[in-house]
Amino acid sequence: MIAITIDNRNVLAEPQDTILQAASRNGIRIPTLCYHKRLSPIGSCRICMVEVTGMDKPVPACTTPVAEGMTVETRTERVMELRRTVIRMMLINHPMECHVCGASGSCALQDLAYEYGVAAHEFGEIPVNRRVKPYATPLIPYDPNKCVLCLRCVHACQEIKGIDALSIALRGSLAHIQGERSRCISCGECWQVCPVGALTQAVTDPPTRIHQMEAVTTTCGYCGVGCQMELRVMDGKVWGVTAPDDPEGPNNGSLCAKGRFGFDFIGHPDRLTVPLIREGGRFREASWEEALAYAARKLKEICASHGPDAVMGFSSARCTNEENYLFQKFLRAGVGTNNVDHCARL
């Protein structure tokens, strides 16, 4: 550990810490926007600028390593005013219509504007004609006016997913995110990390903001990985899926296209909710007791007349590991055959 001073407090930091990590380790808050714990430091927003004794200019806390004896000030007049200026710049062309924005309440820009008391378009608007642009996937609309170009999306696409479908198009004030449809896998990682309302999802039209809905933590059923996810539920309906904020479980806070956007089956009218038994070429509804008894009787008959190897079991990747284990045990020990297989993935 090395000793540094932050805001007149003597604190200890790991030698490989950045100023931001050392501050948060010691309970000192430095405001951030582009920083995301699952991504390498980006350094694009310039909100976390702090002053370090001996340096002429402020430095970004998220990318600057600590050094023994360093003295850091996080709230000098100079950096507070810098932050205000940067927030004002981010609000240029930003529609001031938080009441109709899906991110309101979970928006980093809104929070910063509140904290630093930036109320309006103080720099005015810059006439660049920008509408919602085509993006890498039709599942996610992109609004360049709301975008603050923090580049979390670009980094997530590259660092977490290794896809690299996003990049910056054009330069200066015309810069915006552009997506490459041929590369994009519609995983929605960009949407998950977007700190503002620039990226939204086009799968459902929720009656309220998804982040305000009840979060039901569950395990994704699409494959055997066991990704942890949160179903966003209101009025008994699933309106969206998010990954838990704290990287837990095998997915570390990440999801794939199926887990994140493939949830409409849950409330779909075609979904089977009771067992069906075919009689005379037509299905009729049955109780679980009846259906299981029927299947058991038929299996026993087949085993008796043709031997257990006339039976084969095929299970689904939607089942958990435990369920699949029981399934093969049932076939091997119960039925008496090794004819068992699995669809491996969906």
């Binding site: 927003c45 310039r46 720099f123 170009l149 004030s173 810069a175």
Partner: peptide
């Protein structure tokens, strides 16, 4: 400068535009 600004940080991307205007 605004035409060269890569757009990857706020002060340069928007700031040089405001100065230019």
């Amino acid at each position: 400068a605004q035409q060269e600004s890569c757009g990857q940080c706020t002060p340069c991307r928007m700031g040089t535009r405001i100065l230019g205007d």
